[in-house]
Amino acid sequence: KKVLATKVLGTVKWFNVRNGYGFINRNDTKEDVFVHQTAIKKNNPRKYLRSVGDGETVEFDVVEGEKGAEAANVTGPDGVPVEGSR
């Protein structure tokens, strides 16, 4: 997949743990970017399912997906594990 941007910060708009996807709002362009649970690189080690929490700040790369921009290599800021869904 073509990389459109790297090390982008954003805020998780919503994430559905059961369906394994959601959207992140980019801090720079204010665009919403699709995020799938497989894109989460560093999950909260205390959680079994990969997820990001609503309102959580995350860092990610933006790649060209089949339906437009999507997140890849999702971590917390500066590469720490994500907090995950509460």
Rank of each mutant, 00 (worst) to 15 (best):
T75Y: 06
A69N: 08
F23Y: 08
E59V: 14
A69K: 11
Q37N: 09
F15G: 00
K47Y: 10
D28G: 02
V35C: 09
E83Q: 15
F34V: 06
I24R: 01
P81S: 12
V33P: 02
V63M: 06
A5N: 06
G55W: 07
K2M: 03
V63I: 09
L4D: 04
D78C: 14
V74P: 00
V74E: 03
G20A: 05
K41P: 06
G22N: 03
E83N: 12
V80L: 13
P77S: 09
A72L: 08
T6N: 08
E59K: 09
V62S: 02
G55R: 06
V33K: 03
V62F: 00
E66T: 10
K13M: 06
F34R: 04
K2T: 06
L9G: 07
L49P: 12
R18V: 08
P77N: 08
A69C: 12
F15H: 04
A5D: 08
N16A: 03
K2E: 06
G20D: 04
N19K: 15
K41S: 11
V63K: 01
V80D: 10
V8A: 03
Y21F: 08
L4H: 06
K7N: 11
N44W: 11
K47P: 09
A72Y: 07
L9S: 13
W14E: 07
G76W: 15
S51P: 10
N73Y: 05
G55E: 05
Y48M: 13
E83G: 15
D32V: 01
F23A: 05
V17W: 09
G76F: 15
R26Y: 01
V8Y: 00
P81F: 09
E66N: 09
G76P: 12
K30Y: 07
P45R: 14
F34E: 06
G55M: 06
R18L: 07
T11Y: 06
E31Y: 00
R86K: 14
K7S: 08
E31N: 07
Q37R: 15
T75W: 05
N19P: 04
H36F: 01
K13I: 07
T29P: 02
T11S: 06
V12W: 11
A69G: 05
P45Y: 09
N73K: 02
G22V: 01
K30S: 08
R86T: 14
A71Q: 00
S51M: 10
V8T: 04
T6R: 14
G79N: 11
Y21T: 06
S85C: 13
K2W: 00
V35F: 15
S85R: 14
Y21E: 06
G22A: 02
D32K: 00
E31K: 05
E83I: 14
R26L: 00
V80R: 14
R50N: 15
V74Y: 04
T29F: 01
L49W: 13
V17M: 11
K1T: 04
E31P: 00
V58T: 02
E31G: 03
T29A: 01
G22M: 02
D28W: 00
L4I: 13
H36E: 07
P45M: 10
V80N: 13
G84T: 11
E64N: 07
S51E: 09
G10F: 00
N43Q: 14
P81I: 10
G65H: 08
D61A: 02
N43E: 10
F34L: 05
T6G: 06
K13N: 04
V58N: 00
V74L: 06
G76A: 15
K41V: 14
R46H: 11
P45S: 14
T57R: 08
R86S: 13
G84K: 13
V3E: 04
R46W: 10
E59R: 13
P77Y: 15
W14P: 06
K67C: 08
G76Q: 14
G53K: 15
G55H: 07
R18E: 10
I24P: 01
K42P: 10
V8M: 03
T29Y: 00
Q37T: 11
E59W: 07
Q37H: 15
D28V: 00
S85Q: 12
E70D: 02
D61T: 01
V33N: 01
T57A: 09
F60C: 02
T38A: 08
D78P: 09
T38Q: 08
K30F: 09
T38C: 07
F34N: 03
L4G: 01
A72D: 08
T38L: 06
D61N: 06
V17Q: 13
G20E: 04
A72N: 07
L49I: 11
V3R: 05
F60W: 02
V12S: 01
L49C: 11
K47M: 11
A72T: 10
G20F: 06
T57S: 09
T6C: 07
